[in-house]
């Protein structure tokens, strides 16, 4: 049953995700700047940017509909719930009975749909172009992500993320070859989904190559702040998902207070390493032409399918 520690862990997790997400983005940007021999922006730069954006006046296009104004909040809300589902500190989370791995993918897809619709709302060339490209990335990345999660589900006989983490972290150590395939597929998917370099460039200002940035071109002020925050949250959710699937050690089992407290520094270290790894990948790879992106993601999707096959063949 749901314990007090579980509820506390749940709330801590949610709060941590919301508060720390921009920090992770700042860390990735800093690492990237170091690797590229630039002087790095401060670790807290994303917070400063959010504060500035919240202060600014919103410039809304004449024909923006209510959809355009509600979408940033909806996207933010969906990603918050997604962040709350992924077990990062403890596995005894009340929300685990509410939504499983498939629902997590569904929530991410819902957020994507809202932001794409908002991108098309004003009716500029770039908005609709960005929305189309985002959905293009989405329709290949989403099934790939689902297949990665299914591989883990097949191993643990459950789609509940808490059970998956418990199986992978706390039972006897078993090597799962299928997770090697799943890991590569997951890395490719998360690069694409978080608008990272082989597919998109988060710091580009050349409209023709943009995906995410083109879609949100029309946003300003507090709306843009919500969108940016949501983007940070998305990176955070994907990082935590990766940690939960591939490096689940250190997550407290059940409602163990001490374990949850101990899991916290572990999470920081894992996220720091993960962020550095991400910036390394971004530095060493070149951006693909947009027409190559389906090929990249198609490969990820098929690798994820292979992961399931390998599980059935080698581990079944």
């Amino acid at each position: 049953m749901i314990s007090a520690a579980g509820i506390a862990a749940q709330l801590t997790e949610l709060a941590l995700a919301v508060v720390l997400a921009p920090l992770l983005t700042g860390w990735v940007n800093q690492c990237r700047a170091w690797l590229q021999n630039r002087s790095a922006p401060g670790l807290l730069q994303p917070y400063r940017m959010l504060a500035k954006l919240f202060q600014k006046e919103v410039a809304l296009a004449h024909n923006a509909s209510p959809m355009f104004r509600t979408a940033p909040y909806l996207v933010f809300g969906c990603l918050c719930v997604a962040a709350a589902i992924v077990p990062t500190l403890g596995t005894d989370l009340p929300l685990n009975a509410v939504a499983d791995a498939i629902a997590l993918v569904g929530l991410l897809a819902l957020a994507r749909m809202f932001i794409a619709l908002a991108g098309m709302d004003v009716g500029t060339a770039f908005g609709s172009l960005g929305a189309r490209r985002e959905m293009l990335v989405g329709f290949l990345a989403e099934p790939a992500l689902l297949m990665v999660l299914f591989t883990a589900s097949l191993i643990s006989h459950s789609t509940s993320l808490a059970t998956i983490v418990e199986t992978l972290a706390h039972r006897e150590l078993v090597i799962y070859p299928s997770m090697a395939f799943a890991g590569i597929a997951f890395t490719m998917v998360s690069l694409a989904e978080n608008a990272r370099i082989p597919v998109d460039n988060p710091s580009t200002h050349l409209e023709l190559t943009m995906i995410h940035e083109a879609m949100v071109l029309e946003y300003s002020g507090r709306h843009l702040a919500m969108i940016e925050w949501a983007a940070s949250l998305k990176l955070f959710v994907y990082s935590c998902m990766g940690l939960a699937l591939f490096f689940p050690w250190g997550v407290a089992e059940g409602g163990d207070w001490l374990g949850i407290v101990l899991a916290l520094p572990g999470l920081f270290v894992k996220l720091a390493i993960g962020g550095a790894g991400l910036s390394l990948i971004e530095t060493v790879s070149a951006k693909l032409r947009i027409f190559r992106a389906p090929e990249f993601l198609g490969t990820a999707f098929l690798l994820a399918v292979l992961a399931m096959l390998v599980h059935v063949l080698l581990e079944g």
């Binding site: 090597i175 090697a180 490969t299 080698l314």
Partner: peptide
């Protein structure tokens, strides 16, 4: 205990590399 598992892992890596070469 772990050797068969590691061999399986290496086999999977072999397959993965075969696919990587294909792609």
């Amino acid at each position: 205990h772990y050797a068969p598992q590691v061999i399986n892992l290496l086999a999977a890596l072999l397959l993965l590399l075969a696919f990587a070469m294909l792609a």
